[in-house]
């Protein structure tokens, strides 16, 4: 039983990281209708910037994180302003491919600047652990969950009570109607990219925390977050969180039990499991668990 709880704890922590990455995807999709494959690049950039501010420039960790969030948000705004603004109204294929192109550029620029060795992020948690009963909890995992929960709370308050949040919700429902009511679509799009950039940086910090965990492979965790957003439904922030947790827990339990009970699936199946779950869910519900079904009009 305690082993099961241990796997659950690990799964929730992993899920929180997925959820943070997924939130960045969802907010851009909701506001602008773009699936942002470059989110993984923003996550990576955010983590490396934190390293740069915190370790290379020797600033306090939380200051470094805040600065990385601001800079990544600015990068997001620049991407929107310079490239995606000219792509409004183009087919989904073109939008997807342009963000894939961006991913390649962000990735290679990051590696060109910081190299591809494993680095220490310089976070205060390291490999510290504490115990509750039989269960060992890593400090960085606890912080991942806290930060994800905080981000979700901020999202909720922002969308519910701020006028920009209201404008973003209106634009997501009907861009033309929102424009007619005097809401600036340009501001909304820029804000969405800024928020996605900041969330991405935060996600990058939680993923890269620990000893020598910062290397270019952290962009792949963003690919594993795709099952999470698809599972939850591409346009639902709540879905992103639920999807992230489901995928995280599934992956952790697969990691723990599959070798014992389903050995024929082969070693390393846990990294494939999210995609298997995603395909199965999509076959039953093509718009995810919380997504809005697309209405076909003839």
């Amino acid at each position: 039983m305690s082993q099961f709880l241990q796997y659950m704890v690990a799964g929730v922590a992993l899920g929180a990281k997925y959820a943070l990455v997924a939130l960045g995807f969802v907010i851009i999709f909701k506001a602008t209708g773009v699936i942002n494959f470059a989110q993984g690049g923003l996550v990576m950039l955010g983590a490396y910037l934190t390293y740069n501010f915190g370790v290379t420039w020797d600033l306090p960790f939380w200051v470094a994180v805040a600065m990385a969030m601001v800079v990544t948000a600015l990068v997001g705004v620049v991407i929107e302003r310079v490239i995606l603004r000219y792509m409004v109204g183009r087919p989904a294929f073109a939008l997807i491919m342009i963000t894939v192109g961006l991913l390649f550029i962000l990735q290679q620029v990051t590696v060109a600047i910081w190299g591809d060795d494993a680095l220490n992020l310089g976070d205060p948690w390291g490999l510290g652990t504490f115990r509750i009963g039989d269960i060992v909890i890593q400090e960085r995992d606890l912080w991942a969950v806290i930060l994800a929960a905080a981000a979700v709370a901020v999202f909720f308050v922002f969308f519910r009570y701020s006028s920009l949040g209201l404008a973003m919700r209106a634009t997501a429902i009907d861009q033309e109607a929102a424009l007619a009511q005097g809401m600036s679509a340009k501001r909304v799009h820029a804000a969405a990219w800024a928020i996605a950039g900041a969330t991405g940086a935060l996600a990058g910090v939680t993923i890269a925390a620990g000893s020598a965990s910062l290397d270019p492979s952290i962009q792949f965790i963003a690919l594993l977050a795709f099952p999470a957003i698809i599972l939850g439904g591409i346009d639902s922030p709540l879905g992103a969180v639920v999807g992230g947790l489901v995928i995280g827990i599934t992956q952790s339990l697969t990691n723990g039990y599959q070798a014992e009970y389903l050995a024929f699936l082969g070693s390393g199946f846990q990294s494939v499991m999210p995609f298997v779950v995603m395909v199965l869910v999509l076959l039953v519900r093509p718009y995810g668990l919380f997504g809005t079904p697309e209405v076909k009009r003839v």
Partner: peptide, 20 residues
């Protein structure tokens, strides 16, 4: 059953499942 964005991501899953 899927189109556009969803299809792109599901075909991405092929790469991972295929490699396995």
């Amino acid at each position: 059953r899927l189109s556009g964005h969803y299809l792109a991501i599901v075909t991405l899953a092929l790469l991972f499942i295929g490699e396995h």
